[in-house]
């Protein structure tokens, strides 16, 4: 008995871990890293006309991306997308071509934020689980990008007042439709 009280307690064996037999997976950290990059690029592109200095613009973009990646639960990423829309409104012209990129990036940010909010950094997600989401994203983006290209081509032509009125009515109807009802 040579040890004395207060001596360092011998460490236990290597900490055990639970192995779950899943297919190929990716980590929650990778999701957050992807979210950070996507959110930063979205912010940087959207701030183009608002903040002309590239250094400041991209610094703000990285900060915004970090905030979204750190706090990825709603409504943080959604607020970022709305702010990107407001910044986009500051660009001159009836339809900024960069909007096509922003549309895709905003969609990616929202989906990655959902996954990052549900898979903790220490957790893992099966790659197979991401496939349906990615497939839907591609389908939606294909339609939206086609519509965007059409809008880009017809942008600048004056829309009749009744078209704007129909659009407003459609928006009100949509709002009423999505409002929660008992």
């Amino acid at each position: 008995m040579s040890a004395l009280p207060g001596a360092r307690r011998p460490p236990a064996e290597a900490p055990p871990r639970v192995d779950v037999g899943t297919g190929p997976t990716t980590g929650g950290i990778a999701l957050r890293a992807g979210l950070l990059v996507a959110a930063a690029v979205l912010t940087g592109l959207a701030l183009g006309p608002v903040v002309p200095a590239p250094g400041l613009r991209w610094a703000l973009a990285v900060v915004a991306g970090g905030v979204v990646a750190w706090h990825c639960v709603p409504p943080v990423p959604h607020v970022l997308v709305v702010l990107a829309g407001l910044a986009l409104a500051g660009t001159p012209g009836p339809f900024a071509p960069v909007a096509l990129a922003l549309v895709a990036l905003a969609h990616v940010v929202l989906r990655l934020a959902w996954w990052a909010a549900h898979v903790p950094p220490t957790g893992r997600v099966e790659l197979r689980a991401l496939v349906p989401d990615a497939r839907r994203l591609v389908v939606i983006q294909a339609g939206v990008q086609a519509a965007g290209l059409a809008l880009l081509l017809v942008a600048g032509t004056a829309a009749p007042a009744f078209v704007v009125a129909v659009g407003g009515l459609a928006l009100v109807a949509l709002t009423l439709l999505v409002l929660p009802r008992d």
Partner: peptide, 15 residues
Amino acid sequence: RRADVALLGVPALLS
């Protein structure tokens, strides 16, 4: 009266 701003909200709504 900016179609590009409106377009930005379409994917979230469709999703």
